[in-house]
């Protein structure tokens, strides 16, 4: 921002210098063009705003979505352990991997805090390890920030070893606009709006690994969880 200010000041200084040096006088016509140009910019900006890419928008969630997200947050692991991680409303499969393997033993290396790893044996023997990351929405002050939060894991697969790597934590930056100040009081009277509740919900995640029926996990880490289809 300071750079922008400096650039603006430099531009202003250069303009004043150039006008003085070249002996250019600001005529009425120049002022009229300045005014017309600015007016057109102002009038076009409401339409231009609608042309901006929507990928950068973080949606606002309603009370029902928040409620679903809370339930999903609680139920994700349990439903994953029953072999149905996506059965709960609000759970999204955000990423998938497929690794072909040869051999009958798979090693799972690495443990990421707050990321349960659930393993399911497939019925078939297709020689493919399928991995999927399931997550529930992360919500801050009724803003769904899931898309802006970087995925917490990366996977690599070599010589029948699946390695789970936690990437370096990054920050997520958000920009929020206040309501139009002068119109606020009058419009609130016309159409009362509630203040967004201060809610902070960190989404839950599960790494779900499906291995062929004839493959076993070699030296399983105690943190690994296995699907129990007979469970509740």
């Amino acid at each position: 921002m300071i750079v922008l200010w400096l650039l603006g000041l430099a531009w202003f200084g250069l303009t004043v210098y150039a006008v003085g040096k070249l002996g250019v006088s600001v005529t009425r016509q120049h002022l009229q063009w300045l005014l017309i140009g600015h007016l057109i910019t102002l009038l076009v900006s409401p339409f231009a705003l609608h042309l901006l890419p929507t990928e950068r928008f973080a949606p606002i969630v309603d009370a029902a979505t928040l409620s679903d997200a809370r339930v999903a947050n609680r139920e994700l692991l349990q439903s994953a352990l029953r072999g149905r991680p996506s059965s709960v409303t609000g759970v999204h499969r955000t990423r998938e991997w497929r690794f072909p393997m040869s051999g009958l033993a798979l090693t799972v290396i690495g443990a990421v805090p707050q990321l349960p790893v659930v393993i399911e044996h497939k019925t078939g023997r297709d020689g493919i390890v399928e991995v999927a990351l399931y997550r529930t929405p992360s919500i801050q002050d009724m803003v769904d920030i899931s898309r802006q939060i970087p995925l917490p894991v990366e996977l690599s697969f070599s010589v029948n070893a699946l390695t789970v790597v936690q990437p370096v934590a990054r920050g997520a930056h958000f920009l929020r606009f206040s309501p139009d100040a002068p119109a606020q009081a009058l419009l609130l009277a016309l159409e009362p709006q509630g203040v967004l509740p201060s809610v902070s919900l960190r989404g839950a995640q599960v790494l779900y690994i499906r291995i062929p029926a004839n493959v076993e996990i070699k030296d399983p880490d105690p943190s690994l969880l296995f699907v129990d289809r007979e469970g509740p």
């Binding site: 102002l42 409401p46 950068r56 928008f57 949606p59 898309r147 802006q148 930056h173 606009f177 206040s178």
Partner: peptide, 27 residues
């Protein structure tokens, strides 16, 4: 009043790394 809209448009480009909260963006 229209400056408020131009402000939103300019902010979009001045803060290119920020995600925009989809509230009060469109007047």
């Amino acid at each position: 009043a229209l400056g408020a809209v131009l402000l939103r448009l300019v902010a979009f480009f001045v803060f290119p790394d920020d995600a925009i909260v989809a509230q009060n963006v469109f007047l």
